[in-house]
Design a protein around this nucleic acid. Structure first.
Lengths: 173, 173
DNA sequence: AAATGGTCAAACCATATGGATAGACCGGAT
DNA sequence: ATCCGGTCTATCCATATGGTTTGACCATTT
């Protein structure tokens, strides 16, 4: 059988498993996610994991890779904006509107330490991020702000604060 | 028995377990670390984990908290420096010299999503980081640079690059 | 209609895993 | 010398876990 639309005949489980894996990754984290969690989240027998992906780790890795790509797409949609402050605010908003995808990035970063495949995809994402944002520093800024917004949104800066601090920093360096 | 120097009589296992847990956290990550891994790394019976910490998760959490504090201390030692470029280069060097501690931060960030205790410590670390570095933006920059250096050191910027980009950014915002 | 190849789930299995139990050991107090 | 509280290990146990096997099901092909 040729793999056309995939959903046409069978193969539906494959997509469901990927979706279920992403959900588990976000809700339970890699460490606490079991094959049964994923299968249950996907409404599928857990045997399907072995059939479609070979192993739980392979499925989780694939899910992580897709999540990384999804965030990349989402951010690409936000970069265009000529006002720096609004541009940054739009990016900062993504920490809230797409929190799950950002959490997945964190999980991916941890796994990157052990999975060359994940590391490669994250590295690619970083290269694209540098292009889209115009440098390593804006990219670092985005990643760092994400960390602050995920961990302690009460004290995390908004777009206006970022711009103000950047201006003040400029006088010091 | 009073808990004096701890190492005087017994209790040595407690410290060993914490050290072993940190090692495992870095070498295997939380997800793949078992009680037996920790006990073996510490040269101790795995029953000692239950005795001293109650559960594996409690021990791992404690190890993470200590790692967060250790990195805080280490960074505090590096912030004093009047030349911005050298100051940043010193911080960037820590990604290499203390890579393990930085990896532990990542692991902590992931766990923070599920453990209020870890989240609270990381949040405190962030607040101290803002003070030491002089703002949310420098802190975000540091965290974001760490991500780039851990994932793809080939393309990560050095201190001079950071300063240069900051100056160029200043003209745009 | 029979055969085929691919998709899927129920049941099964070996083992890994976290935790509990029971008792040894050890130093200090009585 | 005996007792005692605290520390530590060997062993045990229930179960959670990842993966495999077996056969059903179904659309397509011959």
């Amino acid at each position: 059988m040729v793999k056309s639309s995939a959903m046409l005949h069978g193969m539906g489980n494959r997509e469901d498993l990927l979706a279920g894996a992403k959900r588990c990754l976000i809700e339970r984290g890699w460490a606490r996610t079991t094959v049964r969690d994923i299968a249950s989240a996907a409404g599928v027998s857990h045997a399907a994991i072995g059939y479609h992906f070979g192993s739980k780790d392979a499925l989780l890795t694939q899910a992580l890779v897709e999540a990384v790509d999804e965030l990349g797409d989402e951010l690409a949609r936000r970069t265009p904006s000529d006002e720096p402050e609004q541009r940054w605010q739009a990016l900062i908003d993504s920490f809230t509107t797409h929190r799950a995808l950002w959490v997945a990035q964190l999980e991916a970063a941890v796994q990157a330490e052990r999975s060359p495949e994940v590391r490669e995809h994250l590295a690619r994402g970083q290269r694209e991020g540098r292009e889209g944002l115009g440098g390593s520093v804006p990219l670092a800024l985005l990643t760092g702000l994400m960390m602050q917004w995920l961990l302690d949104p009460e004290h995390a800066p908004a777009g206006a604060d970022v711009i103000a601090e950047l201006r003040s920093l400029a006088t010091q360096v």
